[in-house]
Amino acid sequence: MSDKTESNKKAPMTDEERLALCQKLDEELDDFINSLEKKRYTDGWPEDRWEEEMDKHPFFMKSVPSDGELSPLAEGLAKLKYDPEENTPLELANSYKEDGNFNFKHKNYRLALLGYTEGIKVRCDDADVNASLYNNRAAAHWYLKNYRSALFDSEKALTFDPNHNKARLRAAKSAFEAKKYDTCIAHCNKLLEKRSNEEVIELLNKAKKCKLVQERDERKKIRSDTKKNEDKDELIKSIIQRGIRISKCDDADDIDLSKLEPTLPGAHDAIVHLENGVLIWPILLLYPEHQMTDFIKGCSENVPLMKQLEQVFPAPWDRDNKYKCESVNVYYEGYDKMPHIIDPMKTLGEILVSKYFELKGGTAAFFILPRGSVIERNYIECHL
């Protein structure tokens, strides 16, 4: 090596020199930072709203924005997650299940139903996932009090996993609420075959008691329906035997209770009935002059019509005192479309079998007019 080369080679830096250089560089960096304009960083998330801002990011979003619009990135992520071309049926089913679980935890049970339903529609081949989807949907139905649907989904879950105890317990509870006590008892017994459980035993005992009450009520209903049918047959038989003409009935075989029900509002409970073999009819008294009516719910066929008039006269609206039992005429309009005067001293039963009388709407209707008045004359002339 030449002398020139050796003279150009620098001597190594000592520790003191290296320390001095580092201090100088630090001082220069501090001077540079201190020379910068001091201002607050404003592009980040505010400390008091960082969770709100985080929820707006597609990766951390928990719900759809209030305006219903998603950013292109969020739409892309959703498509990536739910696109059948990008996911297997099992992956899709799990994604929809996760979506349903999220809404279920936040008590959005109707949205949870939608998530689980979409997962079920995928029809993946995994029995455990299908059992979970149906069981979870049953839980959502349960909280919405859709007990029949909860029962259906719980039993569907059991077809995929017969040992799914949660699904079977929910099936038992749903069956109880839906008053399907035999089904409830069957599911309870299945659960108790595996292990004793106080909740299941209590539910089983309640179902057995309710079943007994239900069976008793059903027997009472059968007896009641049988009695009603017998009474109905006896009622129609009595009407036919008396020869009473019923509107819109071509013959005796055409008579039924639907054609005997009063058509007046609020009068449905006044239908003709039998009391000790006597027909009790609703009747309608009409006063054309004042456009007023009196409805009498129960008038015995054995009582003269005059007795009914005595109950309504004097009328509070009759300021001129024209409507009195001895000063009015009573008419009915027959099936010949003509007015027919009647003797109010006759019984209702006798009037109902008059030659032209026809019972309409299950109610005997009579027109009450002051005898010899202009309104009576006009009433008669308008039918001529």
Rank of each mutant, 00 (worst) to 15 (best):
5 T>C: 08
11 A>G: 02
11 A>T: 10
12 P>Y: 03
24 K>P: 03
30 D>I: 09
33 I>G: 02
39 K>I: 05
39 K>F: 03
39 K>A: 05
41 Y>K: 14
42 T>L: 10
45 W>G: 05
49 R>F: 01
55 D>Q: 02
58 P>M: 01
61 M>D: 02
62 K>T: 13
69 E>G: 02
75 E>I: 01
77 L>H: 01
79 K>M: 07
80 L>K: 15
82 Y>Q: 10
83 D>I: 05
96 Y>L: 08
98 E>T: 04
101 N>S: 05
108 N>I: 03
111 L>Y: 14
112 A>W: 02
119 G>V: 00
119 G>F: 05
122 V>Y: 10
126 D>F: 09
142 W>R: 14
145 K>G: 05
145 K>N: 07
162 P>G: 00
163 N>K: 15
170 R>I: 00
173 K>G: 04
175 A>T: 00
196 S>E: 15
197 N>Y: 03
201 I>E: 15
207 A>D: 00
208 K>H: 10
209 K>W: 01
212 L>E: 08
215 E>G: 02
222 I>V: 10
222 I>P: 05
239 I>R: 09
244 I>Y: 11
244 I>F: 11
246 I>W: 12
248 K>W: 10
258 S>A: 11
265 P>Y: 03
269 D>Y: 01
275 E>L: 13
276 N>K: 15
286 L>R: 13
287 Y>M: 13
289 E>D: 13
301 E>C: 11
308 Q>P: 00
309 L>P: 07
321 N>L: 05
322 K>W: 08
323 Y>V: 04
327 S>Y: 12
330 V>A: 14
339 P>Q: 05
355 K>D: 12
364 A>D: 02
366 F>C: 11
381 E>T: 09
